[in-house]
Design a protein around this nucleic acid. Structure first.
Lengths: 198, 198, 198, 198
DNA sequence: AATGAATGAGGTTTCATTCAT
DNA sequence: AATGAATGAAACCTCATTCAT
């Protein structure tokens, strides 16, 4: 054999689309969506801007595609939660799994968190908000005390904050994540009790 | 009486700077910093772009000036907190006052919250972060249990979230604010107990 | 005695016009005419741009006024030369005096030299060129050999170059100026001989 | 044969970069660097301003690229001179070749000459100055009499002046150039003798 | 004698996007 | 699967100038 094409190129063959997504997400998360230009993405990948347009119709579509690819776990979680009994254990499990998901796709969620003004009028904005909303509804039923609803929202939001805002708290990331999870679980537990859960 | 100069102009004399800040903040909060152009601000005020540059050296300076003007209450709060004994009552009072401040300058804080990626590398980013950090330090001492530190951070972020993310929870904003405040106070109280407070 | 006005201001009273010229020339010479803005001049003087317009009608007028004030010696020299017999001594004397003038008003001539493209279509351009031309005509008569005409032109430009381009030649400025003057005188002398001077 | 694409476009394909340089140099030389806007260049070429930025990163880069392309002959000349024995003949040859180079790329050197204030703080300023300096060092050794060094500088400067400042001397450009070259050669010859050359 | 406020024109630069090849 | 060349719109910003006070 002995093709003339060098290995790097060979390995890259066909996964340019994925590489675009990776680099784009990295830059979006680091600098924000508006401040990341297609030129920058293209340069990092050592391709031309036009190449990006072979794989995606617009800049927004790059983001949408990333979102859709990485967000499946949350969709699954929502689906799973919907079919469970609304016991305390379920709720705690959801918090645990949600924390997991956030960790798994940290850059995306960091991006969503830090670019809310931008995301708001992108196509994905509404859909993301809806998903979080559903999650909340599962954890606390909409007829519960206002204060317990707030507790649940706060639990979710604490998980987000744990990912992105608490990087100066504590030394060991693992320990911190555990602490964050515990606080969130606590909040949900209190909400459950308040709402008359057993 | 009845000079020849029309009233609108007269009233505007001398407060253009303030009007620029007002309109700018409104638009920044609504659309985000990057997506708001100076053209837009100028058009709303019915002045030329160059007029903006008479009052502010750069676009960023407009934001900085808003930030500095509206953020004084937090500085005061930090200062006040620093001089109080670290009792539970102090902590609760701080939470209460902080909630108040957020409400007072809601558009600015909404902006800060939704444009973190942008704010991060603006001049104000670090300074804001530092202030929040100090606030946290007053509420819980940095040697406390990790979990209590997280609780305090969570309390602060709950207040933020209350402002901006919970608009679909409950019907009455007043009631919701009360609930948010209660949850935050709760978290701080728990943290205080955990940290060995009386 | 015992005025409330501080000395600096007092002393400045009435000579703002001159101070504007001084600062303007300094900046024009240093950075070029186009790259020096009225804002910059005003800031250095600690007055507003509008103040400049009290003293001068336009930016160009500032330059014109400087030119007219500092250029009198050349006008005088031309006038003087016109009335002298065209002997070698006269020519040498003109070179000497011209060198002197250049040194006296170095910043202006440096400016003229380094901003020819700009000066060309300012009002002063033609008038300056005409003066240099007359000077040349006195030194060599227009019917002389082409080569001697060039020698004379070269003499004059050597003086210019001496001011501005030879700053890396030799150590002692005084010595250098003497050398420059000697070369120029030489050229004129050769031209005079060639043209059949006695 | 006889494609549908019109000839003009076809001929332009691939040489836009060159055409930008040509038009830019023409305008820079005619009006000066600062007074020439990218809009003007683009309009003359019947392309958009953005097209210029496809080919060059900044306005300055357009100039730099022109400079680098047209200035090679001087670099070559310096290189050549460096390897020759420092005889009178070599020096005269250098003057001759330098005059040639100036004629070849007259617009560029006219530009450099008339925009010194501008060029000074552009990237090319230092590099140009260094080259002229080296040229001078070859013609006269730096330890020679000050007066001979001045003579050499004057020779070089006479060549420049011949290009741009003597357009009103004599009728026939060819004749004038010959005269200029002779004066410059003379100066170098005198300098050589003075420096103790054979 | 000078300021404060503003303008209109225009500057350089960047961006997302297109399309023939 | 990707490039080279270009565009149209718009961004931020600066400038010389004006004028009522």
């Amino acid at each position: 054999m002995g093709g003339t094409m060098d290995d790097t190129r060979q390995r890259r063959r066909g996964d340019t689309r994925r590489r675009i997504q990776d680099v784009a997400l990295e830059l979006f998360a680091e600098q924000g969506y508006e401040k990341t230009s297609l030129r920058e993405i293209a340069e990092r990948l050592d391709v031309t801007k036009a190449a990006l347009y072979y794989h995606f119709k617009t800049k927004e579509e790059i983001l949408v595609s990333i979102f859709e690819d990485l967000t499946q776990p949350i969709e699954d979680l929502v689906e799973w939660g919907r079919r469970q009994p609304h016991t305390l254990e379920t709720k705690q499990e959801i918090v645990r799994r949600y924390a997991d998901t956030l960790t798994q796709a940290a850059p995306l969620f960091r991006f969503m968190h830090e670019n809310q003004a931008t995301v708001r009028d992108l196509r994905i904005g509404e859909s993301f908000k809806a998903r979080i909303h559903t999650l909340r509804e599962i954890i606390v039923d909409p007829d519960a005390d206002l204060i317990d609803q707030v507790r649940c929202a706060s639990a979710i939001y604490t998980l987000h904050a744990g990912m992105f805002l608490l990087q100066d708290v504590g030394d060991d990331p693992e320990e911190r994540n555990k602490a964050v999870l515990e606080v969130a679980t606590d909040l949900v537990t209190q909400a459950h009790r308040g709402a008359g859960g057993s």
